[in-house]
């Protein structure tokens, strides 16, 4: 098991702490932005920040960045499905 792990790319604690700090910073931006009235743009900003945060978590904490391509393909398929679901839901919400 250890043998296998050493073959993988290993990420240092420094990177993990940097990513963690970035996540906290992004969360505080989300909270701050929620207090300002941007109208419909507020939602877009919140979604964008959430997307950046999940990209960080998936790539660094979940090690997808260093995995085989098949995992990335599956992840993209799932991500694409979620995007389609969001677009279709907004067809209702935006036009109501």
């Amino acid at each position: 098991m250890h043998q296998e792990e050493t073959n993988h790319h290993s990420t240092g604690y420094g990177t993990y702490i940097l990513v963690w700090l970035a996540l906290i910073a992004l969360t505080s931006i989300t909270v701050t932005v929620a207090g300002i009235d941007f109208g419909m743009v507020a939602l877009a900003i919140a979604m964008l920040i959430a997307a950046i945060k999940s990209a960080l978590v998936i790539n660094i904490f979940m090690h997808i960045k260093y995995e085989e391509p098949i995992f990335k393909v599956f992840l993209l398929v799932s991500g694409f499905t979620i995007v389609v679901i969001f677009v279709l839901t907004f067809l209702d919400v935006v036009n109501r």
Binding site: L91, D92, R96
Partner: peptide, 17 residues
């Protein structure tokens, strides 16, 4: 995955949807 709102035609969702 693309058809779920056909259960909701009378629920008050938008005409476009």
């Amino acid at each position: 995955y693309l058809v779920w709102a056909h259960h909701m035609f009378t629920s008050g969702i938008s005409d476009t949807a």
